[in-house]
Design a protein around this nucleic acid. Structure first.
Lengths: 191, 191, 191, 191
DNA sequence: CATGAATGAGAGTTCATTCAT
DNA sequence: GATGAATGAACTCTCATTCAT
């Protein structure tokens, strides 16, 4: 695949993302993508052979970006509490934007493809990261001496709860703040 | 609609539920329901005019049952902690069964119909109930003196997180127990 | 068929007429008639086995009425010109009401059933009547000495033209008056 | 839409015309047209999205042709009487062919779409043309000094009457001749 | 006689997918 | 590579007609 082809593929992925954001996963047809990209029906098939294929590549492109963003924001000399706060702040942003992201489409995809492990991988990766972070915090005596893995999972379940609630019924920034505050309070030792 | 018709409607709702459990909401066509019920193409339209209509009645029938089950289990002289434990135990069962319930279909329906408030209503009702329960527990000095509404919401978000996780990636009974233990621990005063 | 059955049949014909007036011939289904009559689906079939059958009986009932009305209005000592004027006046009324009559439905029926001779019979009957009337007028020296049959036909074609125009594009009372005036002027000798 | 597509569209319009001629307007389904054109079910929808759309384009194509035919036949130095005679001769031809034309379908379309003004426009255009022609004839002292507009309308109503009669009950060439003769006689001054 | 649930044929419509150009 | 016309399968929905009660 040449240079030009790669550009075209990028274009398709960008436009397709908008379509998935708007219509979810199951609601999207190849025709929808063709229309959004203003390419030919046959043209799309040169790059992707199903909406699933498009969706998975859209997701892959997304997660690359996401990692970058977080990595950039973590300073060199940040404490565990700092990093946790930063992580939660990012999550809050994400949750509030959920109607403009692939959240719903991704859940829908997961429903339709129970074998697929995308969400599980993301979840596990986040848990592992938080686990390490919490251990670090405990070691540094920033955090209470809790079971790190369980605490990490709890954080993630609360976040998942907020995410799905945000998509299906809406949540306010304040509501999120309350939850995040409970999380921090349960971990960070007040001086 | 006569006696016989009502029975038929019940039959359709039962069979349709199985279909929704298996295929979610968007994946279900009128034809799927027709096939599952072994009735004629036109026959289904005598009772329902869209998959949405069928689904909403399936849900309505479900929620009636659910209420009954919980009401029956609460004893007369139960303490707040007892009731909370019972509630959480029910939730655990529900979560573990989630691949055999309408959970995914309901989320999918909510994605496709953002205006619909079914999930919100259920959530709010549960929060209100927990709020009352927690206030009662605090008054009886069973529970710590927390902000009842925030604690109630926290419980619900954790449960939502477990529910969606259960559907999309699976959760073990142990994982659920850990979460529920954290909830109880955050509320119930140990003697 | 007993007394009660006859009443029921009448009821069906009345309601069905309204349906045909509103929806034409081809636009009417057995279901439409059933709904309008508030009888059972099967019930209708006890009396009629197709929309065509209903329509033909509606038409038959209509033409009986029509004859009655005209006969009643003709006085004993009316001149040919009087009778012609009366006939044209009736026709004018009919044409102006055409959107509330079976005109369109009847044409539509005729299109769909070229073999059917209803319209031809009505037309021929009217021509015959006018032919006699004009001959009488000529004999009485009320009318010019025209070819009675041709004049009769001309009147009918103008009326047909007004009728179809009324249904398809609307005509004003004045327009009709102009046409009727031309007819009278071509026949009646001014004193 | 490319060259090839235009040809295909033409083909569809031609075949569809035959279908409308045979079955009228309401009697035609998309399937009928598909079958007549020997294209695929979906194929027709690439060009037209309803029988109404097809029909209106068939009509549009027709009226273009019709205009051409008449324009070609009018000589440079024709008198008003010549032109009128030519017009009526064309109309006679049209009326005699009416079972092989769109006449019935067009009326049927008008019944089903009272808002549509196709017939009214055609009628008005013809009246306007005849009005001018008659004024010219009067000015040239070829025609009697009648009210041109009323005379023009009378011609058109007679023609409409003949047309609908032709479709619904049939008319002979002689009958038409009689009517056209009356029209000419009422206008043209005999020398 | 009368009912209305039930059936199944058939019309409308949309799409994934192919393929000649 | 790229196009977009074409196909045919699948789905939605409506009705005429039947038949057990």
């Amino acid at each position: 695949m040449g240079e030009r082809s790669l550009q075209k593929k990028q274009l398709i992925l960008e436009k397709a993302k908008e379509v998935f954001v708007e219509k979810g996963f199951r609601g999207v047809t190849m025709k929808d993508i063709v229309d959004a990209c203003e390419i030919s029906r046959g043209g799309l098939y040169l790059y992707f052979s199903s909406t699933e294929e498009v969706f998975l590549e859209v997701l892959a492109a997304e997660s690359e970006e996401a990692d970058d963003v977080f990595a950039e924001s973590v300073g060199e000399d940040a404490t565990a509490a700092d990093i946790l706060a930063l992580f939660l702040k990012e999550q809050k942003k994400e949750i509030l934007r959920s109607k403009k992201t692939l959240t719903a489409a991704t859940y829908e995809y997961a429903f339709a493809n129970p074998k697929n492990t995308i969400l599980k991988k993301q979840f596990t990766a986040a848990v592992t990261m938080l686990d390490k972070l919490i251990r670090m915090g405990i070691k540094n005596e920033e955090f209470y001496d809790v079971d790190a893995r369980i605490a990490a999972k709890n954080i993630m379940y609360v976040l998942e709860g907020l995410k799905i609630a945000s998509v299906t019924m809406g949540v306010s920034g304040e509501t999120i703040d309350n939850e995040l505050y409970m999380i921090m309070q349960g971990l960070v030792i007040e001086e």
